[in-house]
C-alpha cells in the first residue's frame, strides 16, 4: 500500500478493523500506553477522547501520532518484502600483513559452506569482520566484498541495518529470562512468520535433534546446558533468521551434532563461513580458505577422499568424547575406552 493510501485508511477506517487486518499494530498502541480509546472510531477521532497527558509524556502530539502510526504500518506492513536476498559474495583480494597481495578474487554462493583455517592470529576473524561490514577497501586488509558481483554504495551498506549477516559468536549463552517456547514465539513474531506454530515446531525439533540431551518447551533459556543453547541457536539461525550470510567464529562445539548442524544451516539457502580448528567442521565444508599472515593463501576444494575421511574422524571424535566423559566421572581409563567401538 502506498503512503497516501495508508494515510487515507488511517483517517477513515475504525481502529478495530485496522488492528484486525494488521494484528502487529496493536504493539504501536501498547508502546504508547494508548489503551482505553474507542476502538470503533478512526485513530484521529479516537485520540480526541483520550487523555492528553499520556501522549505528551512521549513527546508527541496527536498529529505526530497519526504520522507515526502510518510509518509504523508502512515499516512493518511490508516487512516480509524487506528480507535481504542475495546469491553470492565475491571477495576481491587485498594484502597480507606484510603488504603482499593475496588471492585476487574468489566467490561464495548461496548453499555453500566455507571453512576458514589458519594459525591463531593469522587473520581468520579479520576475514569474517571484512565480510560482516562489507569491506570496501577501507579495512586494514584492503579487501573488497561484492554482493552479487556488485559494489554496494555506502547507503546500501547502511540500509542493511545488520540484516545481511547472522553471527554465531564464541560466547553462546542466552541472557533472556524466557522459556524456550515464549522466546521462539517472540522471534517468529518479529519475523512476521506466516506459520508461527509450524516454524516453532520445526525449530524446536531440530534443536532437540542436534543437542542429544532433550529439553522441553517450558525450559527457561537460561537453564539450557551449553550444548542445548548452541543447538537452539543453530536451529533458530537456520529456521528463523532471515540473514542470508552466517558467520561462525570458532564456536565451542561440545555437545552438538556438528555435521548435522552444518548441513542444516547450509540447506537453508545461506552462505555459511566458519572459522575453525576442528577437522570435522573444516572437512564438512565445500571448500576451505587457508589464511597465512593475514592473507588468503590457498583455496582448497574438499576432495572426495577428504569427504571419505569424515566417518573415521567422527569415530575418533566419539572416542575422545568418551574418554573425556570417563575422566569427568572419575573413572579409570581402560584399553577398550580408547579402542574404536564398532557397532
Amino acid at each position: 500500500m502506498s503512503a497516501d493510501n495508508l494515510l487515507e485508511m488511517v483517517l477513515t477506517v475504525p481502529l478495530s478493523k485496522i488492528t484486525q487486518d494488521y494484528p502487529f499494530c496493536k504493539d504501536f498502541f501498547l508502546n504508547l500506553r494508548i489503551l482505553d480509546v474507542d476502538w470503533e472510531l478512526p485513530l484521529e477521532q479516537a485520540l480526541g477522547k483520550t487523555n492528553e497527558e499520556a501522549i505528551t509524556d512521549f513527546g508527541l502530539d496527536k498529529g505526530m501520532i497519526l504520522r507515526d502510526f502510518c510509518q509504523f504500518l508502512e515499516t512493518f506492513g511490508n516487512n516480509s518484502g524487506k528480507n535481504v536476498d542475495i546469491k553470492s559474495l565475491t571477495i576481491t583480494g587485498g594484502h597480507d600483513k606484510s603488504g603482499s597481495g593475496e588471492i585476487a578474487q574468489w566467490t561464495a554462493s548461496v548453499g555453500e559452506i566455507i571453512s576458514i583455517v589458519g594459525p591463531t592470529g593469522s587473520g581468520k576473524s579479520r576475514l569474517l569482520a571484512d565480510i560482516e561490514c562489507l569491506a570496501d577497501g577501507d579495512t586494514p586488509t584492503g579487501r573488497k566484498i561484492l554482493v552479487d558481483g556488485r559494489r554496494l554504495t555506502d547507503n546500501e551498506r547502511f540500509e542493511m541495518d545488520g540484516r545481511l549477516v547472522a553471527q554465531l559468536s564464541q560466547n553462546m549463552n542466552f541472557v533472556m529470562d524466557l522459556t524456550v517456547k515464549d522466546f521462539l514465539e517472540m522471534h517468529a513474531g518479529s519475523r512476521f512468520s506466516k506459520d508461527v506454530s509450524g516454524t516453532i515446531d520445526r525449530c524446536f525439533d531440530c534443536a532437540n535433534e542436534l543437542a542429544g540431551e532433550r529439553f522441553s518447551r517450558d525450559t527457561k533459556l537460561t537453564q539450557l546446558s551449553g550444548g542445548q543453547s548452541r543447538a537452539l541457536m543453530i536451529a533458530d539461525t537456520a529456521y528463523m533468521s532471515s540473514s542470508p550470510i552466517v558467520l561462525i567464529d570458532e564456536i565451542e562445539n561440545a555437545g552438538i551434532d556438528r555435521r548435522r548442524a552444518i548441513s542444516i544451516l547450509a540447506r537453508k539457502e545461506k552462505i555459511v563461513f566458519i572459522s575453525t580448528h576442528d577437522p570435522l567442521l573444516a572437512l564438512s565444508a565445500d571448500k576451505r580458505i587457508v589464511i597465512k599472515n593475514g592473507g588468503v593463501s590457498k583455496i582448497i576444494e574438499t576432495s572426495t577422499e577428504e569427504k571419505g575421511c569424515l566417518d573415521s574422524i567422527e569415530k575418533l571424535d566419539a572416542t575422545l568424547f568418551r574418554l573425556r566423559n570417563s575422566l569427568r566421572q572419575g573413572q579409570e581409563i581402560k584399553m577398550e575406552t580408547v579402542k574404536d567401538q564398532e557397532n
Binding site: 541495518d161 542466552f174 522466546f183 533458530d236
Partner: peptide
C-alpha cells in the same frame, strides 16, 4: 551484542524498530 545470541539481537532490533521506525540501527 557479543554477549547475547543472534536471535536475541534480532528480537532486540525489532523492538527498537517498533519504537523508532526511521532510525538507522548500527551494532
Amino acid at each position: 551484542g557479543d554477549i547475547v545470541s543472534q536471535a536475541e539481537r534480532e528480537v532486540f532490533a525489532f523492538n527498537i524498530r517498533q519504537v523508532n521506525t526511521s532510525a538507522r540501527i548500527f551494532f
